Amino acid sequence: MAAAAAAGAGPEMVRGQVFDVGPRYTNLSYIGEGAYGMVCSAYDNVNKVRVAIKKISPFEHQTYCQRTLREIKILLRFRHENIIGINDIIRAPTIEQMKDVYIVQDLMETDLYKLLKTQHLSNDHICYFLYQILRGLKYIHSANVLHRDLKPSNLLLNTTCDLKICDFGLARVADPDHDHTGFLTEYVATRWYRAPEIMLNSKGYTKSIDIWSVGCILAEMLSNRPIFPGKHYLDQLNHILGILGSPSQEDLNCIINLKARNYLLSLPHKNKVPWNRLFPNADSKALDLLDKMLTFNPHKRIEVEQALAHPYLEQYYDPSDEPIAEAPFKFDMELDDLPKEKLKELIFEETARFQPGYRS
């Protein structure tokens, strides 16, 4: 834990890192770190609560700039109880001085990944967590956004079992017609939660990839272990087919990539493993919904509104309290091709509203 900075004593240090967030945020305490930044909790002297502050230093890398800009653009436009918001952003007053960006968010005690390492969940908890994931996802999908990296560590939890989806750095506007060349190379989302079509096709992607990830998360809540822990690309596919069985001819016809289709045709026939054999203690309604989410063919996979209306979630289902976005989200430009200098300018502009004396 960093010592509390005395008023006016300059930035606090946390594990050798400068955290320049005073005077409003003090009493910093280390939480963890990701690929390009550290997260601390801090005391907000204005709202009198502890908050989470993520320090991001992305400006050396085009990919990190892209992810940072995506996350900020999306989260500043989203407003939903099951999606983490941005409360404040701290950065230098000029673009030349801006080396880091500090993002202030609600402090959540833990995440689903940490929880599943230590606790076996009751059916009631599984049901409530799944409902909140789908409630947040309904809003995301209504904005025409794909999260693309749903996994237990991106689901934040607090002691009252509130759940918030975080990390929109890989999110995209849904565009089933656009052929994202190089899709697989830039697709760094965790393999275990990846839909089979991501490994088999490169053309376009749809909201059904997020539903697949939610199915993987439900299976993990039922058993405290990942359902498809593939060691590499082909191993991942083999794990999936080992449980779902061989795809039907109709399902194979959806695979545009001939090499991928021929690979699947070359494999020995596998039978589907019954879900109640894998999860003998699970609620039968939970397994019915799991089956509809972990469907090989993305066109037959359940959609988020149908999933919310499934009998497993009937005690929570309330369409009048499951809000959607006001308007579909649009990125003005494809960020993939922009140089990091341009992305830095866009991050600077996007964060201006939090600067003292800002006038829109």
Rank of each mutant, 00 (worst) to 15 (best):
E220Q: 06
L163R: 05
D235N: 01
V214S: 06
P11I: 15
E345K: 01
L244H: 09
E109Y: 11
A171L: 02
P176R: 03
G136R: 01
M98G: 13
L156W: 03
N201M: 08
P298C: 11
A352E: 05
K73Y: 05
A4V: 06
A189Y: 06
L346E: 07
D283Y: 00
L335G: 05
V14Q: 11
H120A: 09
P323C: 14
K300R: 01
G10W: 00
P176Y: 05
A195M: 08
S266I: 07
E109T: 12
P176D: 04
F354W: 06
P247R: 04
T159W: 05
Y36V: 10
E326Y: 14
F129E: 05
P356N: 14
G245S: 02
Y102H: 06
P196G: 02
Y187M: 05
E109D: 00
A282H: 15
A171W: 06
I86D: 11
E96R: 14
D149M: 03
L294W: 07
S202Y: 04
F331V: 03
E60A: 02
K48E: 03
F331S: 09
L346A: 09
R277M: 11
A52G: 13
E60Y: 15
L346C: 10
T295W: 09
N154A: 03
L244F: 07
R15G: 04
T68A: 00
K300G: 06
I103W: 04
I74Q: 08
N281A: 13
G8Y: 09
G230Y: 14
Y25I: 10
L76K: 12
Y233M: 01
S202K: 06
S284R: 10
H178G: 07
C127I: 08
M221T: 10
I255F: 01
K99G: 04
T190H: 06
D177Q: 08
H141G: 09
E60Q: 10
D111Y: 00
D20H: 07
C254E: 13
R172N: 03
T159H: 08
I83W: 10
G34L: 05
A171R: 03
I74N: 00
R261W: 03
K138E: 03
S153Q: 09
A189K: 03
I211C: 08
D167A: 00
N262F: 13
T26H: 07
D321N: 02
T295Q: 10
L146F: 14
F78S: 05
A174H: 11
A174G: 08
P280H: 00
Y317C: 02
K117I: 13
I227T: 11
L76V: 15
L163S: 06
R261S: 03
S153C: 01
G215K: 01
P93E: 12
S223Q: 03
G245Y: 05
P11G: 07
K151S: 08
N276E: 06
G37L: 06
A286M: 14
R359K: 01
S284K: 11
S213G: 08
N158D: 05
H239E: 08
P339S: 03
R67I: 14
E350S: 15
R67C: 13
I324S: 07
P319G: 08
A143V: 04
I72K: 06
A195V: 02
L121V: 09
I90M: 15
P152M: 04
Y64F: 01
Y139S: 05
A325T: 02
E220H: 04
I302R: 02
F296T: 05
D177N: 02
N271W: 10
A195K: 05
Y187L: 04
L343Y: 09
F279Y: 02
N82F: 15
M38P: 02
L155H: 06
C161P: 14
L335V: 14
V273Y: 12
A327W: 12
K272H: 12
V46P: 13
P176E: 02
H239A: 08
V304N: 13
